[in-house]
């Protein structure tokens, strides 16, 4: 059974839905990123999305690019990602999904990556540049290791592709709120509602919305129709500006958006 799906289900039963928080490993350094992730989960974030820094992050806006580039300049290695998962999981019992671009997984070895992620206590992967059409290796490795696999669905996705994303995903389907990249936005696109309803028609149990969400009101609004709200850049900005304490504070504020 998927720990992620369970958590989302529980939060939809007891509150308006789940809050999913993103932070990259190694920013501003490995220890602080672990502390910040733990602080998220201790302050109302239900599922962690832990990003692995990558040299060519085409889905990311300026804020996350800057953070992950800092991590890379400071010498981030893939093995730090597994270490971070393990350290976070030893301190909090919440599901940790790893968000990674595809090439690092390929180079590490898809099977080896899956096995090491599972051994570290990770729940699965969110893969922004891997579509189900290209994911045969990952489908097999994630099934063998009982890991979740979160694929994306976009406003531009056809109905057939929505169905494909729903069928391929485990844990939840990532509903991209807008045609764009990560970064806080004043308005969370009206398109998000459409993506979620189309995902439901395609049979999705859990559809979580990401891209652009940065305030408690936006979290509340998204959770009125979706199962989870994913916040990234706002948390990274808090970490950059005010360290772990600021992350905890922003997470707690965002979590008020999950109240029913």
């Amino acid at each position: 059974m998927s720990h992620v799906a369970d958590t989302i289900r529980t939060r939809n039963a007891e509150a308006a839905g789940a809050l999913i928080g993103y932070l990259p490993v190694g920013f501003p350094d490995l220890d602080t990123s672990v502390d910040a992730a733990v602080a998220l989960l201790e302050n109302g974030v239900d599922v962690l999305e832990l990003g692995l820094p990558y040299s060519d992050p085409v889905m990311d806006g300026a804020m996350i690019q800057r953070a992950t580039q800092t991590a890379l300049s400071n010498g981030f290695r893939l093995r730090d990602g597994f270490e971070a998962v393990e350290r976070i999981r030893s301190r909090v019992d919440a599901p940790v999904l790893v968000m990674t671009y595809w090439n690092p997984v390929v180079q590490y070895g898809v099977d080896r990556f899956a096995a090491d992620l599972r051994n570290a206590g990770g729940a699965g992967l969110i893969t922004p540049d891997l579509i189900p059409d290209e994911a045969a290796d990952w489908m097999a490795a994630s099934s063998a290791n009982e890991l979740d696999r979160v694929f994306l669905a976009a406003p531009s996705s056809s109905d057939a592709r929505m169905r494909q994303a729903v069928e391929a995903s485990r844990g939840f389907v990532y509903a991209v709120s807008t045609m764009g990249i990560t970064g806080a936005r004043a308005d969370v696109d009206a398109a998000a509602r459409g993506v979620v309803s189309r995902l439901r028609e395609a049979g999705a149990e859990n559809a979580c919305v990401g891209l652009g969400i940065s305030t408690p009101d936006q979290v509340a609004d998204v959770l009125s129709y979706a199962d989870g709200a994913i916040v990234g850049s706002r948390l990274v900005a808090a970490l950059e500006e005010g360290g772990v304490a600021a992350v905890a504070e922003v997470a707690a504020a965002l979590a008020t958006g999950t109240r029913r």
């Binding site: 922004p128 891997l130 994306l152 976009a154 531009s156 592709r161 991209v176 045609m179 764009g180």
Partner: peptide, 8 residues
Amino acid sequence: FVPESLIA
């Protein structure tokens, strides 16, 4: 190997 948003 691109984000889903670009497939269409």
